[in-house]
Design a protein around this nucleic acid. Structure first.
Lengths: 336, 336
DNA sequence: ATGAAAGCGCTAACAT
DNA sequence: ATGTTAGCGCTTTCAT
């Protein structure tokens, strides 16, 4: 009907013939309202289908019982994390608001600061920042960072054990008999990428296999860059028998390049990825990869935040969840 | 630092030695501010890390450039839809707020009315309601319903061809040689569930296979209920050789029950799901299922909403997207 | 038991 | 060019 005009507390008050404050008291179950008046107001509320505006309420109140999940974009990683976050608030009385600018390009580094500033204090009591680029303790609201780009020890974080995950991947390849192992590293500025490379080096060292630096190329977590690098590796005079890619995107790109070059995976080349995104099981052959427990990361992050909200204290907790090697079809013993 | 006190426009005004409105003008690029003043204010804003509160802004302004996606819970269907919605807003200047009560049990029928009332007018310009139970044109805000409970012709909706999808699933099972086919139906109050059941019946009828009513149990689109129902079916004297589940959640729950009971899928039992959520390829064996173009549904819903927002008109568009059978490993010819 | 009024952070007339 | 003021919808003292 007509204009899309909200029903406000004014409408209810007028209709019920009482004042604003009386309506507010009824809504919030405050004392000092006659039973008859309360009933009449309730009736009008039901008739008009009135619901208090979350915005107006949260502008007035200190606490909103809403927690925010701030993401740069809604892609496989963040949406998977949301499922865990939803689990985390279940039964706590908190509601969830996920905020995303839809990965717009203008949102460069520091998007999370902007989002948090815009929402905190009003609308949300605290937030989970998903893969934030710059993390500062100065944000002025309780928050937990999931898989932040830089390692700060002052703020609560949840991440996965990238170091051991990478080591596990290398051990797997070495156990299969590989020695000439290459790595496509991730985005150099990201902590996760650095840890995965370090894990690779540690794994090799533990097995007493020297690292050939010419076999370490940057894949940047990106398909196009990784494809270039993979091509360079596979067209060497003495190509590696196995490639450890810093994420599944890189691994899948490598797989495609290998196929293009007429190689058979895993017979001619073993490939291990990292993340275990759904796509890793859809490719042929399916990808051996290191799984991050993404949902659990979301769950834990919310739990940590709720704890923070309750305690008002800021223990700089760092939760590092275990990673796990998922062996599929892209790895085997080297040919010869 | 210290207390988590927001930096407000007052702080900026005080620090820069100007009035509130001047700061507001600078923020919103309004005319009537001297270059020098503007620069000074900008500097203070940067120093203090000030960002206007979305809540306060949207309380004042008519338009917020934010669209809401209202979901009852964050599960595979809704999160997959979010990816499409994110694609839909990309480059439009709109931002996305996803609101979820985390599937709390109290949120009975009509949750979407409550959410929409709480957010519309303030905070969001319009909304996409994901699987709403009751849809009324009276909500007082532009919105598009995805896969709504009831088929109302007055409001814009986006859904998938549930009827034909279910028929296709049944045809597949019948072609494989199954005759004793059970169905775990969905939430009885949802139109999608009714259409999938109707498609099942039509498919059976077309093949001349009578429907054994004792093999139709309610799975309610839920894992726990479906597990119960699946157990009942599989422990019958003469259990079905195939089960068509109304959604993937139910199908995966069925798969787990079958494994628990020592059955081998698909040798002892064929299972077909509906939705093709990412999880359907991750289970073992991977699930044969009817694909709904969920992402596209999200994309289309957002596009439709933006169109509505622009036009102010309400063409009662109904978009029904095609479904498609994806054959994987959970179906084969019946054993004996 | 009820209502008037102030104010949460912000914007937009309307002064000056 | 800058400041003052009145709300947006709501809750909460503080009267009455």
């Amino acid at each position: 009907m007509s204009k899309s005009s909200r029903v406000t507390i004014h409408d209810v008050a007028r209709e019920a013939g009482v004042s604003l404050s009386t309506v507010s008291k009824v809504i919030n179950n405050r004392y000092g309202v006659a039973a008859a008046t309360s009933a009449r107001v309730q009736k009008v509320i039901a008739e008009l289908g009135y619901e208090a505006s979350l915005v107006a309420q949260s502008l007035r109140n200190h606490e909103t019982k809403v927690i925010g999940i701030l993401v740069a974009d809604l892609e496989p990683f963040s949406t998977e994390l949301l499922k865990g976050a939803a689990e985390g608030v279940r039964g706590t009385g908190y509601e969830l608001v996920i905020y995303s600018a839809g990965g717009r390009t203008e949102a460069r580094d520091g998007w999370e600061r902007r989002y948090l500033s815009r929402l905190s204090g009003t609308l949300i009591d605290g937030a989970v920042l998903v893969t934030p680029t710059i993390v500062s303790a100065q944000y002025g609201a309780p928050f937990v960072a999931v898989d932040p780009h830089t390692g700060t020890s002052e703020i609560p974080t949840v991440d996965a054990d990238n170091l051991r995950g990478a080591q596990t991947a290398v051990h797997h390849l070495i156990e299969l008999g590989h020695r000439r192992i290459a790595m496509l590293t991730g985005r150099p500025d990201l902590m996760s990428a650095q840890l995965r490379e370090q894990g690779f080096r540690t794994g090799m060292a533990q097995a007493g296999v020297p690292v050939d630096e010419s076999l370490l190329l940057v894949g940047d977590y990106r398909a196009d860059i990784s494809a270039e690098a993979a091509k360079a590796l596979l067209t060497m005079d003495e190509p590696p028998t196995a490639i450890f890619a810093a994420n599944d995107i890189s691994a899948i790109a490598t797989l495609e390049v290998a196929v293009d070059l007429g190689l058979e995976v895993p017979r001619d080349l073993s490939i291990v990825g990292f993340d275990n995104v759904p796509e890793s099981v859809l490719c042929t052959p399916s990808l051996t990869t290191v799984e991050q427990p993404i949902r659990e990361m979301g769950l834990r992050a919310v739990e940590l935040l709720l704890q923070l909200l309750r305690a008002e204290s800021i223990p700089a907790t760092h939760l590092t969840l275990d990673t796990r090697l998922v062996v599929r079809q892209s790895t085997s013993a080297p040919r010869r």
